[in-house]
C-alpha cells in the first residue's frame, strides 16, 4: 500500500517544526527558507495551512521537464529530482499549477518534496498530528482528486 502525507490544517499551530525538520533533512541546516513544506499563516497566526507537493498523478513537473530530470519513485510514489540531470531551466516551476516545485538559487537546481524516501521528517516532527503519513486510502484522496480534476488539462478517462 502506497502512503501519502495527510495534512489537517485545523490541527496546525504553525510551530514550524516541519519546516525545520525538512530543511535539516535535505539541506543539513535548520533553515525554514529552504524547507520543501511551508506553513502559511492567516488572520495573524490564528489559522495556518501546511503546504507541500501531493505527488499528484498528473505530475505536471515531470512532463514539462525537457531532460528527464524528474522521475517517479515507484516504491514511494514521490516524484524526485535527479540533481545530476537537472540543468536548472525552471520550466517545471511554472508548469506545476500548485507551485510546489521551486528553484533553489544556491544550487542552481529545483527542489521538491520527495517524502524523504518513505520516512517523511515533517510528519515525524509534527507534534499535533497536523501532518501524518498514512495509507493513501486515508488521505482524503478523493477530495484531492476532485481538486486535481479541476486543474487537469489532460484527457478525462
Amino acid at each position: 500500500m502506497q502512503k501519502s502525507l495527510l495534512i489537517d490544517p485545523d490541527k496546525c499551530t504553525s510551530c514550524l517544526q516541519c519546516e525545520m525538520a525538512c530543511s535539516f533533512e535535505h539541506e543539513g541546516a535548520f533553515n525554514p527558507a529552504k524547507s520543501r513544506i511551508k506553513i502559511f499563516e492567516f488572520e495573524h497566526g490564528r489559522r495556518a495551512i501546511p503546504y507541500t507537493c501531493t505527488q499528484c498523478a498528473e505530475a505536471w513537473c515531470l512532463h514539462a521537464c525537457p531532460v528527464e530530470a524528474l522521475v517517479r519513485n515507484q516504491a514511494t510514489g514521490a516524484v524526485e529530482v535527479k540533481e545530476d540531470v537537472c540543468v536548472g531551466c525552471k520550466v517545471c516551476t511554472i508548469a506545476c499549477p500548485f507551485g510546489t516545485i521551486n528553484y533553489n538559487q544556491s544550487t542552481g537546481k529545483v527542489a521538491k518534496c520527495d517524502l524523504c524516501g518513505g520516512d517523511p521528517q515533517c510528519a515525524a516532527a509534527c507534534p499535533t498530528g497536523a501532518i501524518t503519513y498514512v495509507d493513501s486510502d486515508w488521505t482524503g484522496y478523493e477530495r484531492m482528486k476532485q481538486w486535481a480534476v479541476k486543474t487537469d488539462n489532460r484527457p478525462q478517462a
Binding site: 508548469a95 507551485g99 486543474t151
Partner: peptide, 14 residues
C-alpha cells in the same frame, strides 16, 4: 519570485 511561482499558472488555468 521563485517560491510557489507555479501557483500563478494554477490560478490562470483553473
Amino acid at each position: 519570485l521563485t517560491q510557489h511561482v507555479g501557483v500563478l499558472r494554477g490560478l490562470v488555468q483553473t
